[in-house]
Design a protein around this nucleic acid. Structure first.
Lengths: 223, 223
DNA sequence: TTTATGTCGTCTGTCGACAGCCCACATGAT
DNA sequence: ATCATGTGGGCTGTCGACAGACGACATAAA
């Protein structure tokens, strides 16, 4: 009885949008790849209209870009882009964490604490997948608890633009512990109800992330 | 010889997008109004396809919203939305101004100063139109000088969402002078190369704006 | 009068078709 | 060989048409 509710059929353009997005995140489409309306339409055995709409939406999200000849490519962040995106994320997330430090409920603080301790045990067991997941959750919880839907949306969009690099988060010199320490400091500041400190710690933590990422990218480029 | 360059014909969907946006800003379409693809297509004597694409784009920008029945309405910010948008703007703009305080060139600082003094004389002459324009310019310069395209784009999108209320900026108790003072303090901090102070002053200034706006909205609502 | 059923019009989602543009390749002239 | 001119194929922008969904109104049944 599916809760007495029938699901509205999901229109093609939405399904296509989701699928393309997943393919970008999964690396099926790689940065710089060109996409063709007709080809995608043929592949799904539908007309070009829904495909066009899906592409338009993804262009607006920034995951696809259109050149002056209306050709569509998968977004490929330049180094400058990466810096700019991080700058924006720091701005938004540090605001979020300050809000959380001010008004988080006790229960919410407990949730953060639990995520942290789960994270610690994942590190001990060396479960990379789990670690990445919990780290993401920590950030997500903070954004959620800031209770600002628009901020959440903006951060998510920014994150998806560097999603391409998400594998690199945990690589590098002793990253798991460094990240854990960063999160721990942030949590501590929240628990102390110290917005400025929380904000500051998050800025430092994110800066670490950026620096690590840029280092790894440079290494890759040299090889 | 038009600089030897021919302009590519602007596609319909872009023109329509621009037109709809202007109409929203000019109040031709009011918040909450429903829009119809067919009607707009008929009006411009074109097919629905370009209209659909224009609408999709505007939905992604947030100026139009689509309900669960695929009906299109002009975005009508709730009070909570207004707060959230301002929170995001403060986050981004205060970051921008801190960057400017760090790395603005002397010439850029002069531009800010000139805008301020123009603003002062506009106040003396009571030129409301000019005042609004210069105030906007002040903020825009700061964003530009922060040299972060993505930040600029985000702020512009957020601003357009409350564009509906732009008339109210200058109404209220002695607003022009309060705003001028706010901008002056920000400028001062930039000139002193004091990022924290600049950031702080901008936060206070924007908070004033928000408070004033909310007051006026409440008054309106009571009447 | 109130409820139930049927019909109509309108709006959105999708389709297939066509025209214009751009590019690559080929053909021909120098 | 090099450059100019065709020529063809592929891709995007736009169009007009149809089907399904939804609501309004009317009509019929209680």
């Amino acid at each position: 009885m599916n809760q007495g509710m029938l699901q509205k059929a999901i229109p093609y353009y939405e399904q296509v949008q989701q699928t393309i997005k997943e393919r970008i995140f999964n690396g099926v489409y790689e940065p710089g790849d060109r996409l063709y309306e007709v080809q995608i339409a043929r592949e799904f055995a539908i007309s070009r209209s829904p495909v066009r709409e899906a592409i338009r939406t993804l262009i607006n999200e920034g995951l696809l870009i259109m050149d002056d000849k209306s050709q569509i490519y998968v977004y490929e962040p330049s180094l400058k882009d990466v810096y700019e995106i991080y700058e924006c994320r720091v701005a938004l997330e540090s605001t979020a964490v300050a809000l959380v430090a001010q008004k988080a409920s006790e229960d919410q603080i407990l949730q953060l604490e639990k995520t942290l301790s789960d994270s610690a045990s994942a590190i001990k067991k060396g479960e990379k997948e789990e670690m990445a997941c919990l780290n993401a959750k920590f950030h997500e919880l903070i954004i959620d608890f800031s209770d600002n839907m628009r901020l959440k949306k903006l951060v998510n969009e920014l994150k998806s633009l560097t999603n391409y690099y998400r594998f690199l988060n945990l690589e590098g010199e002793d990253r798991p512990n460094v990240i854990y320490k960063g999160h721990f400091d942030i949590f501590q500041a929240i628990k102390e109800r110290n917005p400025e400190k929380a904000s500051q710690k998050l800025k430092e933590h994110t800066h670490d992330d950026l620096e690590n990422l840029v280092n790894l990218l440079n290494h890759k480029r040299e090889r």
